[in-house]
Design a protein around this nucleic acid. Structure first.
Length: 606
RNA sequence: GGGGACGUAGUUCAGUUGGUUAGAACGCUGCCCUGUCACGGCAGAGGCCGCGGGUUCGAGUCCCGUCGUCCCCGCCA
C-alpha cells in the first residue's frame, strides 16, 4: 500500500545530519539504499544525492512502523519522520559523514515501490556498460555518477561566472543552420516547408561568433552543444559541449590569458589550484620532442639518437640512414621479461614506414658503443625502459610519410609520430610503475604556430589545417602562393596531459586576405561565394580584428573526474555506433513523416 | 572502411584435452535473529551458454557467419 506525499516537507537532505542535530525532529526523503533486518530491529540506509543516513525501526517501540519497514525493498522511495539520535560510541560508523547519528523513525511513508533493478546503485562491482547505458537512470544514481555530474555543473558555473565578470556576453546562436561542407560531416535536418532542403546542426558556431564580432558585441561566449557526424572514440561523442568564445582586437596572448583565467576558476571549483601562465611550445617542437601535437608533459620527451649510430649499424638493423632514429624513454619501468617485451609489439602503430625495436638489450649486445650513446643522449637511468623507433631502410619507401608533402617534412613525421604514439601507449601500460600519472598532476601546454595547410593526399590538394578563416602569420603572407606548406597559422591549441582541450586562432578580418586563402586552397571565387557568401559579404562591412577559441567542456570534466571516457561525465551519452541505448535512437520514422518531408529511404531500416 | 578484445543465472565471473546433472559470489524469495552498517544463519527459486549455421556419436568449449558492447587506426576544417 503506497502513501501520498501530502503536505509533508523534507527538512534535511540525507547527507546533512550531524551530531549537532541530535534531539531534533527531521523528515528525510529518498531511496532505500540497503535494509538490514535483524528481526525486531530494522536498519534502513536512506539515500539521496547528498549521501546516506541510517534509519532505525524498533518493533518494541513502534510495532506498526516496524512491520511496514519489513515491506521495504531496494530502491523504494520513502519518507521518514523521526528524531535525530546520537549513536552509542561503539556503534558509530566512521565511513560516512552522518555516521555519528541515526534517525529513529516515528513514521514511515512508502512513496513508491521499485521493481528489482538489473543492478543496484550501491554495488561495488560495475555491470557492463551496455546495461549501464540502457538503465542510465539507475546508473546515474551511483555515487560516482552523481559526483561527476555535480562536478560538471560546478565547472560550467565557474566558467560562466568568470567570463561574465570579464565582460563576455553569453549569446545564443542557431542550432538549425546551414551546411558548409569541408571538415566534419554534418548532421542534417530536413525542411518540411522547403522539401529537398536541409538545415545542418552546427559543428561549432564558428561563423556566427565571428559575425557577432562584426556586429560589435566585442566579447562573446557560449557553453554550447556542437554536433559532428564522425566515428566515436572514448574522448569523442557525436554531440558534445564546447566553451566557445570570441573577442575583438586580441593578440593570441590575450585569448590565452582568458582561457588560463577561466580554467583556473574551473579547477578551483573542483578543488585544484593551477598556476598560469601555461608553458608554450611550437607545433614543430611538439612533433620533434613528443611526436605529437598534443604532448603529454608528464613523461620525458623522445630523443633523436641518429648520431649515436654509424651508417653501418643502421644498415645491419635494416633501417634508413636518412630518416631520424629516436629513443623513447619511460622512467622506472625496470627489467622486462621476454614475454612482456613481446606484448609491446602489438601496441606499436606505424605511421608510414616507421619500425620499432622493442628490445634495447639486443641493440646493447650488438652495438654497445651506440647503445651507450643512446643512454647518455636520452638521459636514461638503468631502470628506464628504452625503445628505439626508426624509419624502414627499404629503398623508395619514404617519400611522403603520413601524407606530409616533402616541403613541410622537416621532422620526418612518420618516425616521430609513431614514436609519439608508442610513448603514450607505454606511459599508460606502465603507469603503475613510473608513477608519473598521479591524480591532480595537471600539465597544461599551449601548442602554437601550426602549419596553415596540410597536404591532402587523396584530394591532391592543400587543405586548411585548422579552418579556412584562420589568419596566417603576418610575416608568412607572401608564401601563400609560393610555399603554402611553410605558412604558419596564428592558431593555437591548449593541451592538458596529452589531451587536446581546445583549439583556436586569430581570424582573418580582411576580405583580401580571405580571398588569397581560398585561392591557396584551390577554391574558385564562385565556389567560395556559394559556400560562404553571406560571411564574405559580412567581412566587407567593417570587420574588426578578432580571434577566439573553443574548449571541450566534456573533456575538461573527464580529466577532473579522473575518468577515462566522456561517457562518465555526460548524463546520456551514445555508444561507439552513435546509439542512445536508453531511448533507442536513432529509429526509422513513419512513411507519413517521410512523405511530408519529401524523403525516400533507399535501404529501409531494420 | 580496417584491426583487436569481450558476450555463460537478475549482476559479476569460473567452466580443464569436446563427454553425461553448467558452478561460485552478490542480488532475489521464504523462515530465524535487538546494534547492524558489504549484518549474520537456514532453506529455496533462477540458464535459448548473444543469435544462425557447420564439424562431431556428442559443442558453453572447435570452425564459419551474424548481432551487440568496448578499445584503436582511418576519419574528426
Amino acid at each position: 500500500m503506497l502513501d501520498f506525499l501530502g503536505d509533508l516537507q523534507r527538512t534535511h537532505m540525507c547527507g546533512a545530519l550531524r551530531a549537532s542535530d541530535a534531539g531534533k525532529p527531521a523528515v528525510l526523503m529518498g531511496w532505500v539504499n540497503r535494509r538490514r533486518d535483524l528481526g525486531n530491529l530494522i536498519f534502513i540506509d536512506i539515500r539521496d544525492r547528498s549521501g546516506i543516513t541510517q534509519v532505525v525501526c524498533n518493533k518494541e517501540t513502534n510495532a506498526g512502523l516496524h512491520e511496514k519497514a519489513g515491506e521495504l525493498r531496494n530502491e523504494f522511495v520513502i519518507a521518514v519522520l523521526g528524531t535525530v539520535k546520537l549513536r552509542d560510541p561503539n556503534t558509530v560508523n566512521k565511513n560516512i559523514p552522518t555516521g555519528e547519528i541515526e534517525l529513529v523513525a516515528d513514521e514511515l511513508r512508502i512513496l513508491n515501490e521499485a521493481k528489482q533493478p538489473p543492478f543496484l546503485p550501491g554495488d561495488s562491482v560495475l555491470p557492463n556498460e551496455e546495461l549501464r547505458l540502457q538503465y542510465r537512470y539507475i546508473d546515474l544514481r551511483r555515487e560516482t555518477m552523481q559526483r561527476n555530474i555535480e562536478l560538471r555543473h560546478k565547472v560550467s558555473i565557474a566558467i560562466r561566472q568568470y567570463l561574465a565578470s570579464h565582460n563576455f556576453f553569453e549569446i545564443e546562436t542557431p542550432f538549425m543552420t546551414r551546411s558548409t561542407p569541408e571538415g566534419a560531416r554534418d548532421y542534417l535536418v530536413p525542411s518540411r516547408v522547403q522539401q529537398g532542403a536541409f538545415y545542418a546542426l552546427p559543428q561549432s558556431p564558428q561563423l556566427f561568433k565571428q559575425i557577432l564580432m562584426i556586429s560589435g558585441f566585442d566579447r562573446y561566449f557560449q557553453i554550447v552543444r556542437c554536433f559532428r557526424d564522425e566515428d566515436l572514440r572514448a574522448d569523442r561523442q557525436p554531440e558534445f559541449t564546447q566553451i566557445d568564445l570570441e573577442m575583438s582586437y586580441p593578440q593570441p596572448e590575450r585569448v590565452w590569458e582568458v582561457v588560463e583565467g577561466f580554467l583556473s576558476a574551473a579547477f578551483k571549483a573542483a578543488g585544484y589550484e593551477i598556476k598560469p601562465p601555461f608553458p608554450r611550445m611550437s607545433y614543430d617542437d611538439a612533433i620533434r620532442l613528443y611526436g605529437s601535437d598534443k604532448p603529454d608533459l608528464r613523461l620525458p620527451p623522445i630523443t633523436d639518437v641518429r648520431d649515436a649510430f654509424t651508417g653501418e649499424n643502421l644498415q645491419t638493423l635494416g633501417v634508413s640512414e636518412s630518416l631520424p632514429v629516436v629513443a623513447i624513454r619511460i622512467p622506472k619501468v625496470g627489467e622486462l621479461s621476454r614475454k612482456e617485451r613481446d606484448d609491446l609489439k602489438p601496441l606499436f602503430i606505424s605511421k608510414g614506414s616507421a619500425k620499432l625495436f622493442e628490445d634495447f638489450k639486443r641493440i646493447e649486445k650488438s652495438f654497445p658503443e651506440a647503445a651507450a650513446k643512446v643512454r647518455e643522449k636520452s638521459g636514461a637511468a638503468l631502470d628506464d625502459l628504452i625503445l628505439i623507433v626508426a624509419g624502414d631502410g627499404k629503398p623508395g619507401q619514404h617519400k611522403s610519410e603520413g601524407g606530409v608533402k616533402p616541403e613541410v617534412k622537416q621532422h620526418d613525421h612518420a618516425v616521430h609520430t609513431s614514436a609519439g604514439l608508442m610513448r603514450v601507449a607505454m606511459g599508460q601500460r606502465f603507469a603503475a610503475k613510473h608513477g608519473a600519472f598521479a591524480a591532480g598532476d595537471f600539465r597544461f601546454l599551449w601548442v602554437t604556430d601550426f602549419p596553415m595547410f596540410e597536404w591532402d593526399e587523396d584530394g591532391k590538394r592543400w587543405a586548411a589545417a585548422h579552418h579556412p578563416f584562420t589568419s596566417p602569420h603576418e610575416r608568412d603572407m607572401e608564401k601563400l602562393q609560393s610555399h603554402p606548406g611553410a605558412v604558419r597559422a596564428l592558431a593555437y591549441d591548449v593541451v592538458l596531459n596529452g589531451t587536446e582541450l581546445g583549439s583556436g586562432s586569430i581570424r582573418i578580418h580582411r576580405q583580401d586576405i580571405q580571398k588569397k586563402i581560398f585561392s591557396a586552397l584551390g577554391m574558385t571565387e564562385a565556389e567560395a561565394r556559394s559556400r560562404f557568401g553571406f560571411f564574405l559579404e559580412a567581412l566587407e562591412y567593417g570587420t574588426p580584428p578578432h580571434g577566439g577559441i573553443a574548449l571541450g567542456l566534456d573533456r575538461i570534466v573527464m580529466i577532473l573526474a579522473g575518468a577515462d571516457s566522456l561517457r562518465e561525465v555526460i548524463p546520456f551519452p551514445k555508444t561507439a555506433r552513435a546509439v542512445d541505448l536508453m531511448v533507442d535512437a536513432p529509429t526509422p520514422v513513419s512513411e507519413a513523416q517521410l512523405k511530408e518531408l519529401g524523403i525516400q529511404v533507399k535501404n529501409g531500416a531494420k
